[in-house]
Amino acid sequence: MEIKELRGLRGVVAAVALLIIFVGVISSFIQLEGNVARGISEEYNKLAYRMAPNNLASWLYDYRGFDTLIETGVIYVGAVVSVMVIGRGLVGLKGMREEEEVAAAPPIALKTETMPVLLKYFALPVVILLLAYGLLVVTSASTSGGGGFQCGVIISSAYLLSVVAYGRRSPLNMRKKALVAFGALGWGLYTLIGLPGYLTTNFWQYNVGADLWSGLPSFPAAVPEAFRQIFGEPFKLALHLEEGVYYATSGILPIINVAEAFNVIGAICLIFFAFVYGWSDSAEGVEK
């Protein structure tokens, strides 16, 4: 739709609709100010320290962990669909005459030889620093702000910077099949990490490492000690509180964060790859 189409009656209707929505939303938020019901959030906050000092990690990857799995799926599906539009996995019925396919957009002409020398020398250390920062963010997801999403975005920007600065000779030159596999590994691992909880308790994604609830009388199953050890011990934390030192483990949360990071790296870099180089099934890594 072009802007000129919004002139006249259609534009008036659109403007009035937007105005109504704007007034409705703003007046609601004004009314809610100071009146927000705390509801279940108080309970979440009360419990969070027993698992991960970073409350957000407990919220996102444990209490609401299955939500986040599907959000991760949104990123994965976004990449699959975007790259499909560029040309990966387009289909047709056998023996049918096809409507003319959309001409694929030409790859972006990256002229890295014209990049200033200073920038070329500057880019490599920045890429290394970004990679290190991404790893730091994902490994400390349970204890401080950050996590798999953030790590994925940081490492993707390192990839982007290296491709812009060095083109095909980028030190981070990941092949498209590897990027597809990264995304699959990420979403697949996140999905499968629900299996230990399911096999032992029938609750999908029950955090068998942290195991906060199997002591309750109404808990319907028992978590074997071996599962608690395997998924709990490696991620044990010592919390130094005024009341003393308290030990807790975030269990499967660090693994989920790593999976999340793989998914985001695979998805974002794949979209970027497809838009820069186009898509050709026959020539892996060769520009169109």
Binding site: I70, G73, V74, V77, G78, V80, V81, M84, V85, G87, G89, L90, V91, G92, E98, E99, E100, E101, V102
Partner: peptide, 17 residues
């Protein structure tokens, strides 16, 4: 949200304009 994206994917897959 994911359902809407999937609809777009299934439709776009034919590659037709």
């Amino acid at each position: 949200e994911i359902g809407s994206l999937l609809v777009a994917g299934l439709v776009a897959a034919s590659g037709a304009g």
